[in-house]
Computed example of a mutant assay.
Amino acid sequence: MSKRHMKCLAGVTVSAATALGLAAVPSTASAPRDLVVHPGGSIQRAVDAARPGDTVLVEPGTYRESVLITTPGLTLRGTGGRTVISPAAGSAKTTAPKTTKAAKTANACATGGNGICVIGTKGHTVDDVRIRALTVSGFTKSGVWASWTDGLSVRGVTARKNGTWGIAQERSTRGDFRRNTATSNGDAGIFVANSVSEEGGATDTKGTVVLDNAVTGNRIGVTARRVRNLVVDGNLLAGNCSGVFVVGDESKPAAGAMTISGNRILENNKFCPATPRLSAIQGSGIVLTGSEATVVRDNIVRDNVGTTPLSGGILLFKSFVGALNTDNDISGNLVRGNKPADLANRDTAGKGNTFVSNTCGTSVPAGMCAG
């Protein structure tokens, strides 16, 4: 027969299915469990109680806390737009008492200004965490922040009105960011980097994917900063200052070896002022700076209009430290209605860059449009 054991934990219901067999056989300790967080309960307390393979199910409601995940194989699942994680009112405190492990770990995420954190270390990554179907809104830094992870999967998440990044990953591999909505965040809607605190060569992400997301109203839609081996495909990128921005520098290995394909990049005409590292941005579709061996193909890039040095449909531009673009392939894109040009190679010192079979009206230099 089957047994089910239930216990309450500060607003959390833990449900563990037992092994099939005789009534005398006890529950298997390693069997995956569902830990259900009810309105008024603590997500962090449930996460702290979870074991690898468990699922924390968060019922509809607004939960004013930050959540730190350090357990591999954990799933955090909400109910879409009805499950909202927002900053604690007036402080970074959690709903758990200060003396508990829940409070201490959650505060490590909250004091950084983040909503959900998945954090490992250089010698011990946190692997195969899944975040599903919830909204993270109003944090001063990131909605979802990950560092030293492998196989992190974020799907069906809405990250909105966070101060810096909507969904961000550094020092991590094999990330899967799919069917999310990132809107009105202060910097990039989706951000993938080698490190935010150190210079250095590009990280091989080992196949991180950014697929089928809707990214609107941010400073930049998708930023790939000093990384390699990445796919950005099938996304809607609209109403940002720039759609896709690939950032490289003089370090080795160089950024690049990625594919940007099948995206709709439309009217990214919001104006963003200059920063210490970058000129003002407006009307930028796809920008490559200091990139090598990147494939940009089969994208629709329309009506991105601005008057900054980075304005236009698809651009090659030297990085802010002067690193050149090399061996990039821009082909088969539909690029129309972008100003000052649909295609622009403003990195003429770069070598091996090709523009082939792109449907466009204007290019700099002239002659790069197929029709």
Rank of each mutant, 00 (worst) to 15 (best):
S311W: 06
K270L: 10
G115F: 09
F139Y: 12
P365H: 05
N107R: 13
A202E: 01
E292Q: 14
G113A: 07
V144W: 09
V295P: 01
S91A: 14
G201C: 05
R171G: 09
V136A: 00
A16S: 10
T99L: 02
V196M: 15
T294W: 00
S291Y: 04
A344Y: 01
R82M: 09
G367P: 05
P340E: 02
R219H: 13
D187W: 14
V47I: 15
G367F: 02
C8I: 08
N269I: 08
T75M: 12
S42G: 08
D176M: 08
L288H: 05
G207Q: 11
A46F: 07
L288W: 02
A108Y: 03
T181E: 12
R179N: 13
E199C: 05
T326W: 02
V37E: 03
G337D: 05
L35D: 09
E170R: 14
V192D: 06
S184L: 14
T308C: 10
A49L: 01
G143T: 05
K161W: 11
A214K: 11
T223A: 04
A50H: 07
L334H: 11
A202S: 05
T83E: 05
S42R: 03
A10L: 06
N328S: 01
P97T: 12
L9R: 15
K351Y: 00
R219T: 14
A202P: 05
V12K: 06
L230G: 12
T95W: 03
T105K: 08
A254H: 01
E65S: 13
N358H: 00
D329C: 08
P87S: 05
G138A: 11
G290I: 05
N114S: 15
R336G: 04
A293Y: 09
L310E: 11
D128L: 03
S147F: 03
P72D: 03
K3G: 01
T362Q: 10
V231R: 14
M1V: 08
D128H: 13
A146C: 07
S86Y: 03
W165V: 05
G40Y: 02
V144C: 12
R178Y: 06
H5D: 11
S86W: 00
H38Q: 15
V126W: 02
G248C: 06
S27P: 01
A366W: 03
A366N: 13
F271L: 01
A349V: 01
F355W: 13
G40N: 03
P39W: 05
T28H: 10
T216D: 07
N107V: 06
A31K: 09
S363M: 03
D128G: 07
A238F: 08
T94R: 14
A280T: 10
A254C: 01
A293F: 08
C241F: 07
D347V: 00
R77L: 03
I260E: 00
M1W: 00
G156N: 13
C272Y: 07
G337N: 04
A24S: 14
G143E: 06
V56P: 12
T173I: 14
P97L: 08
A10S: 15
T55D: 04
V296I: 15
G163H: 04
S291A: 15
V246R: 00
A344L: 04
S137P: 02
A193D: 09
T354C: 07
R346C: 00
T183Q: 11
A88D: 10
T216W: 03
D327P: 00
G120Y: 04
T28K: 09
I330Y: 08
T70C: 00
R77V: 09
A89D: 14
A96P: 07
A19Y: 02
K141C: 04
G78Y: 06
T164E: 13
G337I: 02
